[in-house]
Simulated scan of single mutants.
Amino acid sequence: MKQILVPYDFSKVAEHALDFACQIADKSEGNILLLNVIEHPTADSFKTMGIQSEDPMEQLYIKKMYERVQEKLAQVVSNAKYSDDKIATKIQLGNAFNTIIDQITEENVDLLIVGTEGAEGLNEFFVGSNTEKIVRKAQCPVISVSEKVDLEPIEKIVFASDFINTDDFLIEKVKSLQAMMDAQLKIVKINTPASFTSTRHDLKQMQEFVEKYGIENCTTEIYNYKNEEDGIIYYAEDVEADMIALGTHQRKGVGHFLAGSIAEDVVNHATIPVWTAHIKD
């Protein structure tokens, strides 16, 4: 993970995201880009601070806001707990969601780490619906965190799928995540009344999946529940998992094996970090 992007709105969950990013950067010898997006009613007319508004009062407002954010970011980076980390800062004007997605490409980002459920700070950005959109559209893996989390205790990662038409790109990313965390992969299929399949069928399917991708240090299990999103979360709780990993389709924003925004629902309701990455259509 050479380039890690952390959107930062000065909320507590954004701080949790930065703290977690620092731990990952330390382990992977990566760099962190701390991004703040200044939103403004007429921000569509601005792409950088170099573009001027025709309204002098608007110019003054933007200038003061920029200076304020710049000062606050400097205070964050100067915190002693980040003294050993390589953290760069960037301020952009515009729509927060669109800017974050654009910066992934512009800054060649390998991993995006976002806080969820933030309801304070300058932008009040990290609420559920915005995080859902990021998970759906980001062109790199995303880790969503809602609470303070430490890297070292991450020993079990739940990976849920239907194991039909599995995606090579996604599985390689999951294996890389597992290797970075040095964790056990808890591979699970959520069996629901609406999409019931036999235990014999599922166990054979998962065993073929494990063999096809050469996955090591893993377990396979079937978990019965009335719906997939709650089944994933409850299974993770039952096995005392430390992280959940899911694939998403960019086109529909849905989990690989589900109808509906299941990955986004899990992101919104899980208390442990959730890793998501796109399935290549």
Rank of each mutant, 00 (worst) to 15 (best):
H256D: 14
D55Y: 08
H40M: 12
P153N: 10
S146L: 10
G50I: 01
P7V: 01
V77M: 03
Y234T: 14
G94D: 03
A80G: 10
T271M: 13
E147P: 09
F196E: 15
E152M: 13
S176D: 14
G260M: 02
T166K: 05
L93Q: 07
I232L: 05
Q3A: 14
K2Y: 09
E67V: 02
T219S: 09
E221I: 05
E39F: 11
D168M: 05
K90T: 12
N79T: 15
N227H: 04
L5F: 04
A21I: 00
Q3P: 02
H40R: 08
S261V: 07
A160H: 01
A263M: 06
A183H: 08
I272D: 03
A194T: 15
T271Q: 14
K81D: 04
E237G: 09
E15L: 06
A277D: 13
H201M: 14
F97I: 15
F159Q: 06
K27N: 08
Q59S: 04
E39C: 14
A259H: 12
K175H: 08
N36G: 03
V158A: 01
T99P: 06
N98W: 14
T192Q: 07
E58M: 07
R136D: 01
M65V: 13
V254Y: 11
Y213N: 00
L33A: 11
T248F: 00
T116M: 10
Q52L: 15
M57D: 15
A74W: 00
K156M: 09
F126W: 02
D102V: 09
N227Y: 05
F46I: 06
Y66N: 01
K175M: 10
I215E: 00
K186S: 13
L185R: 06
Q103P: 09
T48G: 01
T271P: 03
L73E: 05
D168T: 11
D202Y: 04
S261W: 04
M206Y: 05
I101P: 09
N191W: 01
A80E: 14
E221H: 11
E58N: 00
Y235R: 06
D26P: 00
Y66I: 00
H40L: 13
L33W: 03
A245Q: 04
N165R: 13
S176C: 00
T105W: 12
K64M: 10
K86V: 14
T271K: 15
T42G: 11
V267K: 07
V76P: 04
I154M: 15
L246R: 02
A277N: 13
G50V: 03
A241M: 03
S28K: 13
Q23L: 03
Y213I: 04
K175E: 00
S195K: 15
V266Y: 00
H278W: 08
T199V: 13
P7L: 07
Q70F: 10
Q59H: 02
A236W: 09
